[in-house]
Amino acid sequence: MEPIRRIESRSVALPIANIDTDQIIPARFLTTTTREGLGRHAFHDWRWLPDGSPNPEFALNRPEHAGASILVAGHNFGCGSSREHAPWALVDAGIRCVISTAIADIFRNNALKNGLVAIVVSARVHASLLERAGERLAIDLTHERIEREDGSAIPFAIDPFARDCLLAGVDELGWLIARRPQIEAFEERRAWNA
């Protein structure tokens, strides 16, 4: 994985609460055995009209949001299923950061493992970001702050271990595999419960 230190982009607002994983990627696109190429299915049924043309009403389709990689989404983003296809699709569609007042647990876990920075902010900060949707933001992961167009900065906190992995561009599996001796010792000493 590429290390991630800083993400710069205009923000795009999707101020709907409870955007679930079926909206992020509908289940009919999960019939794949790989992780690649899911970007065109991101927000599929909101983004594309039944005839396959772009829905001009959908925020990500507006010309002024072309190339935007920071999404300011409504409360409880990513609720629903455990499908990692959701962050795979978003990242493939160019989204690198999601900011909300609450982000569902499994989605947030999956996002952080795939270089999608999931940030929870207060309702006050969220409202201000929505109010100035389209402004130029910089996510500084090293110092855990959102730098705004007006020069102000908003601190945030994300899982420190996930942050270290993102900054170093490493995944967690290598770390876990290196713990095999402790895992095997645990298996040895444990009284099995069945």
Partner: peptide, 12 residues
């Protein structure tokens, strides 16, 4: 869990 975590559990 997500698929990356499925890999974690399969591996460890």
């Amino acid at each position: 869990i997500g698929s990356t975590e499925v890999a974690h559990v399969l591996a460890t």
